[in-house]
């Protein structure tokens, strides 16, 4: 099973209900977003004058760029298939790909807030929520992003953005089920936003007429994969330890300065 989201741009009117329902549902800070709507154009395309929208969110990729860069210490985590009850145990860091439904999730308790995964995501689908500071880990915040509303879905509800969409433009379901609505759209030609450089199996699909499709893809397809900042990863990994040391007063003057220096090191 792999959850996926199709956006039908022939229906979308760019009203932003999806972005705000998400903010309300998940206490997203006003100036941040787990999802977004960008108005595109009006601009000339080879297919004619076009104006459409880029409603974006985490694409819960098949090979997510965010997962391998997470510097948190891996742990053994047991996952359970919501449908079959089957379990499996994997070694995961603080962000991981769920083995049964294919969603990419964040273990917020263990997130160091370093933002490396956010930098790694070519779609810009993650942000650091500075309201959620894990003092124990000495973090500057906690990573937040779209979860495909798994807690709602598990409770038998639609994702908040899907529920509120007045246009019925957001279609959510299992892309591995050939009879699902998302698969039907895929067969009709819905495509994800991928390029030669960014081809990581995004599960976010867009369906549009030719001119809108042209505008969307020419403006909104990511073309660069971020390079990993090993220094920041290293610092993030050291931070809980250093912080603990600082709190316990085990560091001398030099150590305290070093810790302070690290805290200020925001790129």
């Amino acid at each position: 099973m792999q959850y996926a989201m199709v956006i039908d741009l022939n229906k979308c009117v760019g009203c932003h209900a999806c972005t705000i329902a998400c903010k309300a549902e998940w206490d997203v800070p006003a100036d941040k977003g787990r999802n977004w709507v960008k108005r595109l154009g009006p601009a000339q395309t080879p297919e004619g004058l076009a104006s459409t929208y880029y409603p974006g969110l985490c694409n819960h990729c098949d090979s997510p760029a965010c997962v391998p860069v997470c510097p948190a210490d891996p742990i053994q985590k047991t996952f359970k298939d919501a449908r079959t009850g089957k379990t499996t145990t994997l070694e995961v860091a603080a962000t991981y790909k769920e083995p049964f439904n294919g969603t990419v999730q964040v273990d917020k308790e263990r997130c160091l807030g370093c933002g490396e995964c956010a930098s790694a995501c070519p779609y810009g689908a993650r942000y650091v929520n500075e309201n959620q500071i894990n003092e124990e880990l000495g973090s500057d915040g906690t990573i937040d992003k779209c979860t495909y509303c798994m807690p709602r879905v598990n409770a038998g509800l639609d994702p908040a953005c899907v529920q509120t969409c007045l246009a019925g433009a957001r279609i959510f379901g299992d892309i591995t089920d050939p009879n699902s609505e998302v698969s039907r759209y895929k067969k009709m030609g819905a495509k994800n936003l991928s390029s030669t450089a960014v081809n990581i199996g995004s599960n976010g699909y867009y369906y549009a007429n030719k001119r809108d499709d042209s505008l969307l893809r020419s403006t909104s397809t990511p073309t660069v994969m971020a390079s990993v900042n090993h220094r920041r990863q290293l610092l993030a990994r050291m931070k809980p330890m250093m912080n603990k040391a600082k709190n316990l007063g085990m560091l001398g003057l030099v150590g305290a300065v070093a810790v302070k220096g690290m805290s200020d090191d925001k790129e």
Partner: peptide
Amino acid sequence: LVKLEGNPKSIDNGTSICARGNSGIK
């Protein structure tokens, strides 16, 4: 009030409300 939603019983707007409707709590 933490969230507003369309009334599922509505035959008018259904469960949908727009961006402004969703922002009522603000």
